[in-house]
Design a protein around this nucleic acid. Structure first.
Length: 457
RNA sequence: GACCCGUUCGUCUAGGGGCCUAGGACACUGGCCUUUCACGCCGGCAACACGGGUUCGAAUCCCGUACGGGUCGCCA
């Protein structure tokens, strides 16, 4: 039997970090087994579902390379089918019409909570003839005693006494299906074999299993993964650090880095840290998932992001540095040459344009305040002398280094006497990659012009 | 409150009875390299929640306590 997994977000907000990781695990598990990974939008609640949220979820998933196989299923479009199943259960005697009003229910709930007993609707075994002419919900009959054990692939065997399970509502008073019913029916109809989701659904699984059993359907394999917490250990919530996946894109994180980090959050393969998509597919298994909740650590995400930035091809890095700006072939060539040096210093993609600004055009760069301090009168004199002695032809980094070495010796100076101020004059900054590499790729004419332009005092 | 789950360095984790005076990564930190920053390299700090068992031997197995999380909706 081929594996089918699914990621089923509810479109009430954006795709957050926890959801992204759940999607990742489902994707990886399916790919590992050569199965299918499906998407289903759980828009059962019309009030809270929005088109914007659906778009945002797809946007996030696409960014992370976690788009589903085929079209995403819209749960709301399947309402008829859900109702049909509820009817079937009703006819088979597994469910009943419950005429309890919301107020009555609230009262019962309070009492149940106080006594520790579960709510049992008086309509569960009532005579259908006595039914009033008013709205009703359709509830599933939970066994009164005994227990159910789920062989969860992450949590292990988990047992719950039926006495703690209420008769779940499958159809609301207005006849619409609830989430509890819809998941089960959709998972079955979609052929889902493995349900991998947050462990906030673990308790639901017991209720859902009863619907499955009543319908005589095969029970899927369950894997309830621990939730992700914020850096302070508190639950991640919208107002507490639970940023949308795409917010990280905007902050300059690469999707590869995000997936790698998310994968390691709660899953491990020995001491391996840097794991690309291909490797992840090969290695992923449910056994590697930990049982305890993990905290989201931006520092580590950033470290991994730096790694992936460094691994980018120079041409891609050059394009990133340009940030959409036009550039002549010679400037692109220059940026490509400088790319590895810049990438080594970047933590976020957005660092690139700022760092490379002085190299992305031939205009005289403005000197930043801290760099200006390096350009005192003495330094300017030295630089102007250097500019005079510079050859007309461009030099390779090695050749320029050799030239500079000889020039320094002739002047009786050390590299530290010229390096920092040369950097300040040529780049306008105090901190940049190797100034020799920079001068070489900028070209002698450029270097002379910049020294002249920035050493006027 | 009831029910379920969890607990190894600050964080993510390795570990599945002796290989553990507990390993890796991030962070922090000392040094080297050096034209700055960064990278890299070498070194350091730092953990088995607690208490009982079981065993020749426990981070690893069992029980309890504490703490943390989750669930208890005609939300998903």
């Amino acid at each position: 039997m081929s594996v089918i997994t699914r990621f089923a977000p509810s479109p009430t907000g954006y795709l957050h970090i926890g959801g992204a990781r759940t999607a990742l695990f489902n994707y990886l598990f399916a790919r590992h087994h050569g199965g299918r990974y499906l998407l289903r939008i759980e828009d059962t609640d019309h009030e809270r579902s929005t088109k914007d949220a659906i778009d945002a979820i797809h946007d996030g998933l696409n960014w992370l390379g976690l788009a589903g196989d085929g079209e995403a299923v819209s749960q709301s479009s399947r309402a008829d089918r859900h109702v049909e199943v509820a009817q079937q259960l009703l006819e088979a005697g597994h469910a009943y019409r419950c005429y309890l009003t919301p107020d009555e229910l609230t009262a019962m709930r309070e009492e149940a909570r106080a006594t520790g007993q579960k709510i049992i609707s008086p309509w569960r075994d009532a005579d259908p003839q006595s039914a009033p002419d008013q709205p009703f919900t359709v509830r599933l009959k939970m066994p009164l005693d005994g227990s159910t054990t789920i062989a969860d692939q992450v949590q292990g065997d988990v047992t719950v006494q039926h006495a703690t399970l209420d008769d779940l509502v499958m159809l609301r008073g207005d006849g619409s299906p609830t989430y509890m019913l819809a998941v089960v029916v959709d998972d079955h109809d979609m052929g889902v074999t493995h349900v991998i989701r947050g462990d906030d659904h673990l308790n639901n699984a017991f209720r859902q299993m009863k619907i499955i059993e009543a319908m005589g359907w095969p029970v899927p394999v369950y894997a309830h993964i621990p939730l992700i917490h914020g850096a302070d250990g508190a639950k991640l919530s919208k107002r507490h650090g639970a940023l949308s996946a795409t917010a990280y894109r905007d902050m300059g994180y690469m999707p590869e880095a995000m997936c790698n980090y998310l994968l390691r959050l709660g899953w491990s393969h020995g001491d391996d840290e840097i794991i690309n998509r291909e490797q992840a597919i090969e290695w992923f298994d449910l056994k590697g998932i930990g049982k305890s909740p993990a905290r989201f650590d931006t520092d580590k995400l950033t470290a991994i992001n730096s790694h992936y930035i460094r691994a980018l091809p120079p041409e891609d890095l050059a394009a990133l540095m340009l940030d959409g700006q036009d550039a002549s072939p010679s400037i692109v060539k220059r940026l490509v040459a400088l790319a590895p040096a810049f990438a080594e210093r970047a933590h976020h993609l957005g660092d690139l344009p700022a760092m490379a600004r002085f190299a992305a055009s031939n205009y005289l760069p403005a000197v930043e305040d801290d760099a200006q301090a390096l350009l005192d009168a003495d330094a300017c004199l030295r630089l102007q002398k250097l500019a005079q002695d510079l050859p007309d032809d461009d030099l390779s980094p090695d050749a320029f280094k050799a030239f500079l070495g000889q020039w320094l010796e002739g002047e009786g100076l050390k590299m530290r006497d010229i390096g920092p101020c040369l950097r300040a004059a040529v780049t306008g900054m105090k901190q940049t990659p190797d100034i020799i590499l920079i001068c070489s790729s900028l070209g002698m004419e450029n270097v002379k012009a910049r020294i002249a332009g920035n050493c006027k005092n």
